[in-house]
Computed example of a mutant assay.
Amino acid sequence: MPDAEPRPEPFIQETSPEALEDLRARLRATRWPDSPEDAGWSLGTDLGYLRELVAYWAEDFDWPTQEAALAALPRFRVRLGGLGIHFVHARAVAPAGPVLALVLSHGWPDSFWRYSKVIPLLTDPGGHGADPADAFDVVVPDMPGYGYSDRPLGPPLDSIAVAGLWAELMTVLGYDRFGAAGGDIGSHVSRYLGLDQPDRVVAVHRTDAGVPVFGGDRAELTPEERAYVEGAAAWGAAEGAYGAIHRTKPQTAAVGLNDSPAGLAAWIVEKLRAWSDCGGDVERSFTKDEILTGITLYWLTGTIGSSMRMYRANAAIPHAQLARRVEVPSGFSVFPGDLVRPPRAWLERTTNMVRMTEPARGGHFAAFEEPELYAEELRAFFRPYRTVAAG
């Protein structure tokens, strides 16, 4: 007898009072390390700031209010590839023309949380001062091992496999053609959607090009491309220790991070600060409540270890896959505070790049840091492809 068709079911998250009391007890019992005087953020997370954040988390942070706000999004779960996948499916409000479906893929260290601010701007542009004709149906899945999606019990899935799941999800939701967008690991997933589903994906938008991979003679590169490749290597040497741990020994780190909420906060908030366009002050980009909402999602779902293991899976992707050129129309919004910013020549070399912009503000988490700017970037890029999808 054939398996039944996957059927999305509404999802409502509920956190028990006992889970929150356990979290607060662990926070209050934190065994703090020492720190050299005036170390600040130079050695990693600033201990003074972390103490302040942890105290707020233990005594003042209102998770039920944040949980209720996230519950206002139309959220579902469906079984795909043997895994329960959690996703937001928000339909266009009062569209004034063809509606384009758009799947948004997040990265690390986040989840569907990354797009929670931008979803209403994309589904209801008319209600936010933009053209109603730019309305999208928006799908935001949690990747396996992240958020409220299942954690793979066997080997972790790489970005190619996740792209395959997203294609299946869009079929289940009734979308034959759609756009794809993302950043960080979500940029890779969006790239593979364009590579492996060219008859379905009308265009791909990304905020980064990932770690540059080039197997040819570097003399063929422009000076800007060589600087980009060398800059990425220098960034990896100075800032990439977290990634090396994720790729090689994620379980070792997961023991401490899954047991200590203060340790989890230290691991994540340092990246929120370093990767955002905040000028060294993380709360210029994120409030304490926003920081702790993302971290609490990791804590309550116990997904820090499974999220890190995806780095190991992606590290095993063959070079031939990494070197493939994306031929579907591709667009890039290169935000000033992102990690390593690719030059136009590199994007033209590796993709069918039809649009590149450099917004005035925003960093690696642009959809959360600058949702209005990010929404306008997506509206402008995908505008020519609405009739393509409808046809």
Score class of each variant (00 low, 15 high):
Ala68Tyr: 09
Ala68Thr: 08
Trp57Ala: 09
Ala101Ile: 03
Ala101Phe: 03
Gly97Tyr: 04
Ala96Ile: 03
Ile85Val: 11
Trp63Asn: 06
Leu50Val: 05
Ala71Lys: 04
Ile85Leu: 09
Val54Pro: 11
Ala55Asp: 15
Leu50Lys: 02
Ala71Ile: 02
Leu53Asp: 04
Leu53Ile: 13
Asp60Trp: 00
Thr65His: 08
Pro64Ile: 12
Val103Ala: 08
Arg77Ile: 04
Phe87Ser: 07
Ala94Gly: 03
Gly97Thr: 10
Tyr56Met: 01
His86Trp: 05
Ala72Met: 12
Leu80Arg: 06
Val88Cys: 06
Arg77Asn: 01
His89Val: 07
Leu73Pro: 13
Tyr49Leu: 12
Val88Asp: 02
Phe61Arg: 06
Val78Gly: 01
Pro74Asp: 12
Pro64Cys: 12
Val99Lys: 09
Ala72Asn: 09
Asp60Phe: 00
His89Cys: 04
Ala68Arg: 12
Ala90Ile: 12
Thr65Val: 14
Pro74Lys: 00
Arg51Ala: 11
Ala68Glu: 15
Ala71His: 05
Arg79Pro: 01
Ala90Asp: 13
Leu70His: 10
Leu47Trp: 14
Val93Glu: 01
Val78Glu: 02
Tyr49Val: 07
Arg91Lys: 15
His89Asp: 13
Leu100Trp: 03
Glu52Ile: 03
Trp57His: 08
Leu80Ala: 01
Ala71Phe: 03
Tyr56Gln: 10
Ala72Val: 06
Phe61Lys: 07
Leu53Lys: 08
Leu53Gly: 00
Glu67Met: 02
Pro98Leu: 06
Ala101Ser: 05
